[in-house]
Amino acid sequence: MGLCRPDPPARPHPPRPGQRQQHQQKQRRGRPLRSVRPGPAPPRPARREMYGHKYPGSFLKAIVNRPLQKEFRASSPTYMSLGSVLCLVTGASRGFGRTLVRLLAPRLGQGSVLLLLARSAAQLAELAAELRGTRSGLRVEFVAADLGCEQGLRQATAALREVLPAGPPGRLLLINNAGSLGDISKTFLDLTDPDEINSYFAFNITSALCLTSSALQAFGKQPGCSRTVVNISSLCALKPFKNWTLYCSGKAARDMMFQVLALEEPDVRVLNYAPGPLDTDMQLLARTKTGDADMRQFFQNLQESGQLIDCSVSAQKLMKLLEEDTFCSGAHVDFYSI
């Protein structure tokens, strides 16, 4: 019986195109030479980390690198029903609130009641008429009131109590969207007028607190029912922006306020949703009226590079969060983290 010849030692494969150059680069850097095999690109940083960097440079880079927005077509989507809901939306007459209401209405089941709140009676009446004409089985009511004053807040609370008996007993959905920028031409040291400051916080904080607590009390705790509260938040709730003392303070206070609600009332679903830099009238004010020149340029760059988010795109993400209902109650969820 003959002896088997041992196999010759394996020879390394010749380098593939581009590998020789990589070896040479590593040698020049003083790194140990090792075989380089093609593989998947290293993972990008998490969107939450990218979006959380400081502005304006890396923050702008994070927005520029985000995935392209999906085009919204109102006639094509298949809606998931939220069931029979008593729904209240503040700041519903324009911008994100108006877009959100249009996406929300088709998802409300038969017998639902939709109550719209804002300052502009004409815009509310137009929107209510539009929804009534395109959505059967949905009762749409509106109240034109200034939530920043005591009388307007009472009007809104009275309207809510009036529609409660007609609303379905199963679910309450309250979306606190109303808000304002304040005077962003002023620095911290310029804010010395107590009336100006109190007026801002009355509209942006007090009204949200009083309206939410009144709605939850009026709806009550019922067996088998659900109560959901959404606060439209902002990156400014987490990070300071120059000349935005009032806005950042208001958003931070509202976030914490609703976190306390989630802690005290575990049966209430609470969400702080930051919709991202939206293409709205408020964004126009940001890039033209902000006192700090660097911040103005930052917002102008967002607009000129086409990186502002269409309201319908962000509103669809909020709808997805509400439909899936898997968020941690009280959490701050950003557009870019979804």
Rank of each mutant, 00 (worst) to 15 (best):
V89H: 02
S180H: 10
L263N: 09
A10E: 10
P12K: 09
G250I: 03
E196G: 11
P106I: 02
S81I: 01
L138C: 08
P223W: 07
G276H: 02
S314N: 03
L68E: 12
A293F: 11
F188L: 14
P168V: 00
H13Y: 11
L82M: 12
Q27H: 11
A159F: 01
P77M: 03
L308I: 07
R31A: 15
M80V: 15
S234D: 02
G111Q: 06
T288M: 06
R171K: 15
A253N: 00
S112W: 04
L114N: 03
G276C: 03
S207D: 09
T206A: 07
D334K: 10
P77K: 08
L321F: 12
P223A: 07
L263P: 01
F241D: 04
G152H: 10
S233I: 08
P6G: 01
S136T: 15
D334Q: 14
D255L: 06
F219S: 03
G330S: 06
A105Y: 06
D255K: 02
S234I: 04
A253P: 06
R154M: 11
G83P: 07
C311E: 09
C225S: 12
A208S: 10
A10V: 08
A121K: 13
E264C: 00
V333K: 01
A62D: 07
S76A: 15
G109V: 04
H53G: 14
N301M: 10
S233Q: 11
Q19D: 14
R102H: 10
A46H: 10
Q222S: 11
S180C: 12
I205P: 03
G224K: 01
E304I: 01
F59C: 14
S213N: 15
T99H: 10
D310M: 11
E196V: 12
D325W: 09
L147I: 06
L60G: 08
A286G: 13
L318K: 00
V143C: 07
G91A: 08
D7Y: 04
A286M: 13
L124N: 07
P40L: 15
L82S: 00
K54Q: 15
G167N: 08
R296L: 08
I205H: 09
E264R: 01
G220R: 04
H53D: 14
A202V: 02
L235E: 12
A121L: 12
A331T: 09
F241R: 05
L108W: 02
Y336A: 15
Y247K: 00
E304R: 06
P17I: 10
G224W: 06
A125C: 07
V64I: 14
E162S: 14
R98F: 02
L160E: 07
A128N: 09
P32W: 08
K186Y: 06
L322P: 00
D193G: 10
K242G: 09
L114C: 08
L263S: 11
C4E: 04
L108H: 04
G330H: 01
A253R: 03
P45M: 08
N231C: 09
S112M: 05
A121H: 13
Y247S: 00
P17H: 13
L302E: 01
P266T: 03
N65Q: 14
P106A: 03
Q25D: 12
L114Y: 06
L278Q: 02
S214F: 15
D292P: 05
A121R: 13
Q217K: 14
